[in-house]
Design a protein around this nucleic acid. Structure first.
Length: 312
RNA sequence: GCCAAGGUAGCUCAGUUGGUAGAGCUCACGACUGAAAAUCGUGCGGUCGCCGGUUCGAGUCCGGCCCUUGGCA
């Protein structure tokens, strides 16, 4: 199929497999610019714990969607999509190659598959009210209510209160079932999906070492600094792994070793969640980063794609 | 050496008046379209410290032994 839709390279993979370093190589070789799709890179003031691209890397390659939100602000799918698509336009206009680098599979999918989420603004009061009812009357009551207006959403929401509340919120605002409103429309771009992966056990060990390194590099002081700047620890950015686990320690409620241990456990759990999303995609070309010369082959694959020699 | 408490799933622990074991976490798998590094679900996993006794039947009672922790000498 020949079209003149702009070419985009998307890099998928779990945390710690080397997406950031590879994206720099890719960008340097093909005149690329990085478009971030990692929910934690969006936030200003988070650095060590989220393994953000270094200042040097950001000087070498232009980055988009990094440090664009205040820790108090909440990220959400349409916002990420708008910013990413705007970046694609800007980069393409410069005749450069957009390199979308994931981390947050939900955002990667929403961007590359063109999800259309129901345009219903979250209503804090409505949510608080339902959450209170769930507490007092039991979550079954809400499930039954959702079942009545949107069986599809009720079935897939299970006991996940957040999803139940969201579905009820959409129905309340629009009078229509969330499951009917949502859709997807292929975005006007062509993507090459490159996935980086690594043996899970060895990745876990490497990530544990990364956590130890982050502590040595001053993660505790960074988190303390955020609190000193007036944040409470309840802000959206504080759901970041490496940050929220340090709060009990800084409050004197836990010792450092157990807080660090919890960071490692939560990091591994995060990897599992990412894997669940990634396994579902069938359009990713995978590279094992433990294979000799994987990066050369990945770069070559990208080169062929950009040159129009798609082999598919 | 003596006294006390305790030895049950990888970890922390529940186990009612004896009826061949549960929870949370870990780990694995899955769901999830305005919170997603969030949230929710499923599954794997134990010769109940060892030996013997009582009993139709013992993690649960009795005896002995081993080990851990605390206290006293």
């Amino acid at each position: 199929m020949q079209t003149d839709r702009p070419l985009i390279i998307a890099i998928h993979g779990c945390t710690g497999v080397g997406k950031t370093d590879f994206s720099i190589k890719l960008a340097l070789q093909f005149n690329g610019e990085v478009v971030n799709a990692d929910s934690r890179y969006l936030y200003r003031d988070l650095q060590i714990g989220v393994a953000k691209p270094t200042p040097e890397q950001r000087e070498m390659v232009r980055h988009h969607l990094v440090d664009v939100l205040d820790p108090r602000e909440r990220a959400y799918i349409p916002l990420i999509q708008q910013m990413a698509y705007a970046a694609f336009v800007e980069i393409s206009a410069r005749a450069a190659v957009p390199i979308l680098v994931g981390g947050t599979p939900l955002y990667m999918n929403a961007i590359t598959e063109g999800w259309t989420v129901p345009q219903v603004e979250p209503d804090p009061e409505f949510r608080a009210h339902l959450e209170e009812r769930a507490l007092n009357e039991g979550i079954e009551v809400l499930i039954a209510e959702l079942q009545a207006v949107d069986p599809v959403a009720a079935t897939r929401s299970g006991n996940n209160l957040r999803r139940i509340v969201r579905a009820l919120e959409i129905h309340d605002a629009t009078g229509r079932p969330m499951s009917e409103i949502e859709s997807r429309e292929e975005p006007p771009y062509r993507f090459l999906h490159i996935g980086l992966r690594r043996d899970r056990d060895r990745l876990r060990v490497a990530l544990a070492e990364r956590v130890d390194r982050q502590i040595e590099e001053g993660l505790v002081a960074e988190v303390q600094g955020l609190l000193d700047s007036g944040l409470t620890g309840d802000e959206p950015a504080f759901s970041a792994i490496g940050y929220r686990q340090l709060l009990p320690y800084l409050r004197g409620e836990a010792d450092l070793p157990s807080a660090v241990a919890q960071i490692k456990i939560d990091t591994n759990r995060y990897v599992r969640h990412q894997s669940t999303w990634l396994r579902r995609r069938t359009d990713i070309v995978w590279f094992d980063t433990e294979d000799e010369g994987w990066d050369e082959r990945a770069l070559a694959t990208a080169g062929d794609y950009l040159a129009g020699i798609e082999s598919s």
